[in-house]
Design a protein around this nucleic acid. Structure first.
Lengths: 198, 198
DNA sequence: ACCTGAACACCGTTCAAGT
DNA sequence: ACCTGAACACCGTTCAAGT
């Protein structure tokens, strides 16, 4: 199914993407790197966009693998924090892949949506566990997962674009903002507990 | 300073951007729309990227104008909420401009950074006012402004990419997530008040 | 100072042809 | 089924030349 040249093409394209952004991913250069002609990719991908979508899918699958490997953790809230940090690190180390995964997709790529859904489901599970341990406030776990994801995503995207760094006292990097949100959630969950004890 | 053809070129380019994304912004089409030759843009902009940066600057300036026009509001917290909603609406109505403004910039465009800083400063002022009225928790106002901005930005970016819509019960749009964060901040500021009264 | 038309190198995509 | 080489249309950019 996943032929040898196909994955070689994806790997070559990902390398070019990291080095010079989407503009550097030319089918001619991809072919050269993979040792085939400049239009051999058309036997494996419908178009250049389809090749880029394959990179994005690969990235999302790797993310869910990383999430699986990271699961066993004493406190669920610590697993969540670690996950958040991992997400931020990934975006900062591979900004081009990060932007590709969350960029616009005309050919709405069913495969991509499924890979994203899988990661999401795992995230929601950990949120539920943290709620059961009273480390997160009550409420719809999917909603809280979205809140955490949106903040981490927005913080790192702004940071990459240089729109976050107020130099000096107010300076905040993505990790700090994530910590702020976790602190707010913790405070809120403590209020929840007080109610529960009444 | 802002010559007539220059702004005509920017307007034409913005229109093309809205219609078909950055790929649709070809200098030939921009020239045609503005009634000049396909390389007249080079007398006003160093490159295509420079033209795109001009669109981004224009957009940021318009944002700070909108913020100025919106300022007089009874409760500062309401002004903040309105600002958040405006930001989300803008991104949803003009996704291509939104992505352009927060995309990557090689030629790091000093002009762009200044326009962004101006909007930021206004946002921080309103946060301060809300803190003084005990509608937001204490703490560094720049930090809280970053938190609000990061969440709104991340939520709307995820929504545009289709990575937010868990259908069914857990479904959350950007406005709902912003409301969640405001609720957490309100709760936290009430705890602050209790401390203050002791 | 601003604009034009021709030209160059490069890219995505298609096609006829080979194994 | 997979690959190749030539060809086409298009694009960003440059250049010589015009006002």
């Amino acid at each position: 199914m996943a032929s040898d040249t196909r994955s070689a093409l994806v790997a070559a394209a990902a390398e070019l993407l990291d080095q010079g952004g989407p503009a550097a991913v030319t089918l001619r250069e991809v072919g050269r790197k993979a040792g085939v002609s400049h239009n051999a990719p058309y036997k494996h991908f419908k178009s250049k966009e389809d090749l880029l979508a394959a990179i994005a899918s690969r990235e999302l699958e790797r993310q869910s693998e990383t999430m699986n490997a990271l699961k066993p953790q004493a406190r669920p809230i610590d697993a969540l924090r670690r996950l958040t940090r991992g997400y931020i690190r990934w975006a900062q180390n591979y900004p081009a892949r990060f932007r590709l995964v969350f960029g616009e997709w005309k050919h709405d790529s069913h495969e991509l949506g499924e890979a994203a859904g899988k990661s999401r489901a795992m995230l929601v599970e950990i949120v539920k566990a943290a709620q059961d341990a009273h480390q997160l406030p009550r409420g719809n776990p999917e909603r809280i997962a979205s809140l955490l994801l949106a903040l981490a995503h927005g913080a790192v995207d702004l940071a990459l674009a240089g729109h976050l760094s107020a130099t000096g006292k107010g300076a905040a990097d993505p990790d700090m903002l994530a910590d702020d949100l976790y602190a707010l959630l913790k405070k809120s969950s403590q209020t929840d507990r007080k109610y529960r004890r009444k």
